[in-house]
Design a protein around this nucleic acid. Structure first.
Lengths: 113, 113
DNA sequence: CCGTATCCATATTGATACTG
DNA sequence: CAGTATCAATATGGATACGG
C-alpha cells in the first residue's frame, strides 16, 4: 500500500481513511443514533449520553464535510434542523455493527456486562 | 448502554472498548502484519512503512498488555524475539478486514487508487 | 538485534459560558 | 431550539539519541 493525500492530510492505508470518516469517540455513536431516521439536534443529543454541545457540534460538522450526514433546515416556528445519514454513511453501519459485536465479546471476556 | 470502568479508564460503549484494543494509527497494521505467523521485531518493522521504533515499541507493549499478542524470546546468538497473535487478536481480523474494505470503497469513491 | 528514554508538536476532548 | 466561542487538560504521535 502506497500512501496518499486527501484534504491536506497523508494516509498510509485504507483503514486510516475509513477511521477519518467514522473514528474518534463520537462519530460512531452519532451514526448509530441516526440509523433509524433523521433526528433534530436536541433529540440526537438526548440519545448520546455524556456528549457535550461542543463535541456534538464539531462532530456533526465534520460528518457533514465528509458527506456522511446531511443537515436539513425547515423554516418553521420554532426553526427545525434535522440530521440524516447519507448512503455513504449507511454503508458504514455493518462495519460499526461488527465492531460493536467484537467490543461486546471483549467485554464479556473480562467480565463486564 | 451504561458506562463502565476498566484499567482505570471510563468507557461509554463497546465500540470504545474495541478501539482501545485495535485503535490508533498502528495497532491494526501491526495485527495484519502478524496474521500469517509470528515475526521478529526487525522483520515486523520492515512490513510496516513509516513506523518509528518508538511507535512500534509502545504499540507492541500495549498490545501485549491487552493480550492481543505474545512476546516470545529465544535464547540464541544473536537473541531472537518473536511476536505472535493471540486468539483474542485473531477474532479481530474479520473486523479489520471489513474496515479495510470499507476504507477501500471510500477511497474509490473519491478517485484514489 | 531489539529495544528504551527524553523532549516536543499536534490533535482531541472537556469545561464553561454565551447567543440569535 | 440550535448552536458558537474560548480556554485548558490530556492523549497521541514524531524526532532524536542512546544502551544491553
Amino acid at each position: 500500500m502506497k500512501e496518499f493525500l486527501h484534504d491536506n492530510r497523508v494516509y498510509y492505508n485504507p483503514i486510516e481513511f475509513a477511521m477519518a470518516h467514522i473514528g474518534g469517540t463520537w462519530k460512531m455513536p452519532i451514526l448509530i443514533s441516526l440509523r433509524n431516521g433523521a433526528l433534530r439536534y436536541a433529540d440526537l443529543k438526548k440519545t448520546i449520553p455524556h456528549i457535550s454541545d461542543k463535541m456534538l457540534f464539531t462532530q456533526l460538522r465534520e460528518l457533514e464535510n465528509k458527506n456522511m450526514i446531511t443537515r436539513n433546515t425547515f423554516v418553521e416556528k420554532p426553526p427545525r434542523v434535522e440530521y440524516q445519514l447519507t448512503e455513504k454513511a449507511e454503508k458504514a453501519l455493518p462495519v460499526i455493527d461488527q465492531l460493536t459485536e467484537y467490543g461486546t465479546a471483549l467485554m464479556e471476556e473480562v467480565g463486564i456486562g
